[in-house]
Amino acid sequence: MTSDFMGPPWQADWTKEAEDGRNTLPAAAQAWVDAARAELVTVQDPYFRGIDKAADLPAGMSVEPVQSTRPGGAHVIYFDHGRGWLRYVFTPRTADPQIVIDECIWL
């Protein structure tokens, strides 16, 4: 990332489907979702690029790209030790950078 972009906290938007998925979860799972979202909006690089960048995530959370061949594409943040995840895309625009969460799953 360059200094041309605004820094955290990032704006995070939910698709209707992802928001509905979050709202149907039990309270404990919603707390995990909220914690994962908080990590995304406060980290310097929401794609956690670089060696050991995700090491500061709380226990039970990890991040990886959806496709290893597209490191700048959609990513998944896993929470609750892999029982749930948020799929998201970060758009690092100079004006109004944002995270769009398009899937929220908890098993």
Score class of each variant (00 low, 15 high):
D52F: 14
D52P: 00
D52W: 08
D52C: 02
K53V: 12
K53N: 12
A54F: 02
A54C: 05
A54D: 13
A54V: 03
A54G: 13
A54M: 04
A55W: 11
A55G: 13
A55R: 05
D56P: 12
D56R: 12
D56K: 12
L57C: 11
L57D: 03
L57F: 03
L57M: 10
L57P: 02
P58R: 04
P58Q: 08
P58D: 06
A59M: 06
A59K: 15
A59G: 09
A59C: 04
G60C: 05
M61Q: 11
M61H: 02
M61V: 00
M61P: 00
M61I: 01
M61R: 10
M61A: 01
M61N: 02
M61L: 09
S62R: 13
S62T: 05
S62A: 13
S62P: 03
S62I: 00
S62V: 01
S62Y: 09
S62W: 08
V63L: 07
V63N: 01
V63P: 01
E64S: 14
E64D: 15
E64I: 08
E64P: 04
P65W: 01
P65E: 05
P65V: 04
P65L: 03
P65Q: 03
P65H: 06
V66W: 01
V66Q: 08
V66M: 11
V66K: 07
Q67M: 13
S68C: 13
S68F: 12
S68D: 15
T69L: 11
T69F: 09
T69A: 15
T69Y: 06
T69D: 15
R70A: 15
R70P: 03
R70I: 07
R70L: 09
P71M: 10
P71Y: 05
P71H: 07
G72S: 07
G72F: 02
G72I: 00
G73D: 03
G73K: 02
G73E: 01
G73A: 03
G73V: 01
G73T: 00
G73I: 01
A74C: 10
A74E: 12
A74V: 06
A74F: 02
A74N: 08
A74M: 09
A74I: 07
H75S: 05
H75P: 05
H75Y: 10
H75N: 09
V76C: 10
I77K: 04
I77Q: 05
I77D: 03
I77N: 06
I77P: 03
Y78D: 08
Y78K: 04
F79D: 00
D80S: 13
D80V: 12
D80M: 13
D80I: 13
D80W: 15
H81G: 00
H81I: 00
H81R: 13
G82C: 08
G82I: 08
G82R: 05
G82D: 08
R83Y: 12
R83P: 00
R83Q: 03
R83K: 11
G84V: 11
G84M: 05
G84A: 11
G84F: 11
G84I: 14
G84E: 03
